[in-house]
Each structure stands twice: as structure tokens, then as C-alpha cells.
């Protein structure tokens, strides 16, 4: 464990807590893409299949349970909670995310580290996580204005992957034979997808203006 990875994991946890806070505090999920939340739940379920077979550390197991539990709680909230689900922008959240699932799974069947069920689902979760934010970014552009908590949610989500890139660089230079090119490439693509959002987020913060994404 290094400081970059710890910072990345904590930033990731913060992003989920910000989202849960927004939903519970405002009893609203407007501006949040249910499709992105469903994709993240799928990412964690596919990635943590080894939850009960490989014990890495207490920290690792606890964080996996928190990520799976919180992502399912958000999806449940947006689908079933009678007050929250009313504010879901169903008509704006129209990204066909099934293509992202299918594409990631096909890619995982072709490009993986080992042809085992666990490794294929792991690669699938890595690829899917890289594109899971797309429905959310599309929804933000369509809904025009971004409320603070949703903007912070996307910002922390992008920052977490940027910290992971620093973690991979650190591990590459400190651990011999550390090769995780599936994560590296996918992580770079994922962070690049946030780049334009970061730009507009930073500009709005600098000009102290409300975050407006170009339609």
C-alpha cells in the first residue's frame, strides 16, 4: 500500500459518501444518472468475486464490502425509494449503457491476463469502470446546470483514478516486475474521459461561477 493508492481509495470513498449525502439530505436524485450507478454496482460485483476466496487484508475486504454495499444502496434508493425515485430524470438519462456492458465483456473475453472466470470478470470490471461515467457526463451536459454535490461527486470520482495512475507509476518504479497494463491503459482512458469535465469544473471554480457544461 502506498500513499497514492490510499489517497485514491479514500477519494473514491468520499465520492460515494458525497452522493449518498446528496440523496439523503435532499431526498432527491436529480442530476444523477441511474445508469452510471448501475454500471458501478456491476463493476464492483464483477471485480470482487474473490471477496471470499482471496484474503488480502482487513482493509481490502472492508473496502470491498463498503463499495458493493454503497453502490447497491444508491441503485436501490434511485429505483425503489418512493420519494427519491420521483426526482429521477428518466427522460434525460437515456444513454444506452447496455452497449457499454456488452462491449466491455467482449473486450474482456479477448484481452485478459488469464482465461479464467475470475480474471475475465476482473478485466470486464476494469474496462466497464473506464466508461461507466459516460451516462453521467451525458446527463450533466443535457441538464445544463450542475448542482454542487453532483459536481463534487464527479470531481472526486475523477480524482480517485488520477491518484491510482500515480500509484501505478510509483509501483512500477518501486516493485520489480509490476506489470498491470490492463489497469494502466483502462485507467488512463477513464481519467481522460474526465479531462474536459475537470476543465469546466476548474474554470467555474476559478471564475466562481456556476458550473455550466456546453450542451
Amino acid at each position: 500500500m502506498n500513499i497514492f493508492r490510499l489517497a485514491g481509495d479514500l477519494t473514491h470513498l468520499i465520492s460515494i459518501l458525497v452522493l449518498l449525502l446528496k440523496i439523503y439530505a435532499t431526498k432527491s436524485c436529480s442530476g444523477i444518472s441511474l445508469k452510471t450507478q448501475e454500471l458501478y454496482a456491476l463493476v464492483f460485483l464483477a471485480r470482487y468475486l474473490d471477496l471470499f476466496t482471496d484474503f488480502v487484508s482487513v482493509y481490502n475486504t472492508v473496502m470491498k464490502l463498503v463499495f458493493i454495499g454503497s453502490s447497491l444502496a444508491i441503485v436501490w434508493c434511485m429505483r425503489m425509494h418512493r420519494i427519491v425515485k420521483r426526482s429521477y430524470n428518466r427522460e434525460l438519462d437515456t444513454f444506452r449503457h447496455y452497449f457499454l456492458v456488452a462491449g466491455s465483456f467482449v473486450l474482456a473475453l479477448v484481452v485478459h491476463e488469464k482465461f479464467t472466470l475470475q480474471e475475465i470478470f476482473w478485466a470486464f470490471s476494469i474496462y466497464l469502470e473506464a466508461v461507466a461515467i459516460l451516462p453521467q457526463l451525458v446527463l450533466l451536459q443535457r441538464s445544463g446546470n450542475v448542482d454542487n454535490l453532483t459536481g463534487q461527486y464527479v470531481f472526486f470520482l475523477g480524482a480517485y483514478r488520477a491518484f491510482y495512475i500515480l500509484n501505478w507509476i510509483y509501483r512500477y518504479f518501486t516493485e520489480q516486475r509490476f506489470g498491470r497494463w490492463i489497469s494502466w491503459i483502462s485507467g488512463l482512458v477513464q481519467t481522460a474521459l474526465y479531462a474536459d469535465f475537470f476543465y469546466y469544473y476548474f474554470m467555474s471554480w476559478k471564475n466562481n461561477a456556476k458550473l455550466q457544461l456546453p450542451a
Partner: peptide, 10 residues
């Protein structure tokens, strides 16, 4: 090369 048999990252 992968330096461990399982994924130690989240």
C-alpha cells in the same frame, strides 16, 4: 508480468 497471483488493488 503480474507480480502476484491475485489483485491486491480495489
Amino acid at each position: 508480468l503480474v507480480n502476484e497471483k491475485y489483485h491486491d488493488e480495489l
